[in-house]
Computed example of a mutant assay.
Amino acid sequence: MAKGFDIVGDGAHTVIAVHGWLGSAGAWRPLVPHLDTATFRYVFMNLRGYGDRRGEPGEHTLAEAATDVLAVADALSADRVSLVGHSMGGAVVQRVLADAPDRVRSLVGISPVPASGVPFDDEGWALFSGAAANPGHRRAIVDLTTGNRLTGVWLDAVVRHSLDHSDERAFADYLLAWAKTDFHTEIEGNPVPVKVIVGEHDPALGEQTMRQTFTQWYPNCAVDVLANCGHYAIDETPVALATSLESFLREVP
Rank of each mutant, 00 (worst) to 15 (best):
S82V: 01
V108W: 02
I110L: 14
D99R: 11
I110S: 11
A126C: 08
A91G: 14
V92H: 05
L97C: 09
F128R: 15
Q94N: 05
L83A: 02
P112C: 08
G109R: 04
D102Q: 14
D102M: 08
G90S: 02
S111G: 15
D74Y: 02
V72T: 07
Q94L: 08
L97T: 03
T67K: 12
D122S: 15
A100W: 03
L97E: 03
V84Q: 07
D99Q: 15
S82W: 04
I110W: 01
S77A: 15
F128I: 12
W125A: 15
G90D: 01
S116R: 13
V96C: 13
H86Y: 08
M88D: 06
G109C: 05
R105D: 05
A98D: 11
A100T: 09
I110M: 08
P114D: 02
A115H: 11
S116T: 13
A126R: 14
P101V: 05
F120C: 14
R105T: 04
E123K: 12
V81L: 05
S116H: 09
S116M: 12
G124R: 11
A78Q: 12
L83E: 06
L97D: 05
V104K: 03
W125E: 15
D102T: 10
F120V: 09
A71W: 06
S116C: 14
P119E: 14
D99N: 14
A100D: 13
V96F: 05
V96L: 10
A98M: 08
L127D: 07
Q94F: 02
V81Y: 03
V104A: 08
A126W: 04
D68C: 06
G109I: 00
P114H: 04
A126Q: 15
A100Q: 13
D79Y: 00
L76M: 13
D121N: 15
A115E: 06
A78W: 07
V108I: 08
H86D: 06
V108N: 02
D74N: 13
S111I: 00
A71P: 11
G117R: 08
L107P: 02
V118F: 09
V92L: 01
S87D: 12
G85F: 03
A98R: 05
R105M: 07
A100N: 12
A126T: 13
V96G: 10
V84M: 06
Q94D: 00
P114V: 00
F120M: 15
Q94W: 04
A78T: 10
G117E: 11
V72N: 04
V69E: 03
S111E: 14
V69K: 09
G89N: 07
P114A: 07
L127V: 07
V96D: 05
V113T: 10
R95S: 05
R95N: 01
D121F: 05
V96T: 06
D79S: 14
D102V: 00
P112M: 06
M88C: 08
A75L: 10
S106G: 13
